[in-house]
């Protein structure tokens, strides 16, 4: 049990971060506004969680322009994807053990 708890990643211990990672795992990239609508959060809230994930190198940011409008796109890094998979596996294991 102890070793499984170790795999529960503290960084993902928040609804918004969990949501960001879930969306990025199944898409090549997702832009800021799409994430905002998907997770129903405010700009500031989303930005701070994105920053946190970026800081641990779980996601990367690409900035580009569509015409004159800036468009920020996010995608997972290999480390981030690996960490998220481990996290899900741990969640599933705990649920199975408790049933």
């Amino acid at each position: 049990m102890h070793s499984i708890i170790k795999n529960i990643n503290k960084i993902f211990d928040h609804r918004v971060r969990l949501g960001i990672m879930s969306a990025l795992m199944v898409n090549d990239f997702v832009d800021f506004n799409t994430l905002k609508e998907l997770l129903e959060v405010t700009d500031g809230n989303l930005a701070s969680h994105l920053k946190a994930l970026e800081k641990v190198a779980y996601i990367t940011v690409t900035k580009e322009f569509i015409g004159r409008k800036p468009n920020t796109k996010y995608s997972t890094t290999a480390i981030g994807a690996e960490a998220f998979k481990k996290h899900i596996a741990a969640l599933e294991k705990i649920i199975r053990m408790q049933q």
């Binding site: 969306a23 998907l38 649920i95 408790q98």
Partner: peptide, 18 residues
């Protein structure tokens, strides 16, 4: 346990909707 289950269903939900 309930929170973990909720996490998993939230992950599935967002993966689907995105």
């Amino acid at each position: 346990e309930k929170d973990y289950l909720k996490d998993i269903s939230e992950i599935k939900n967002i993966m689907n909707r995105s």
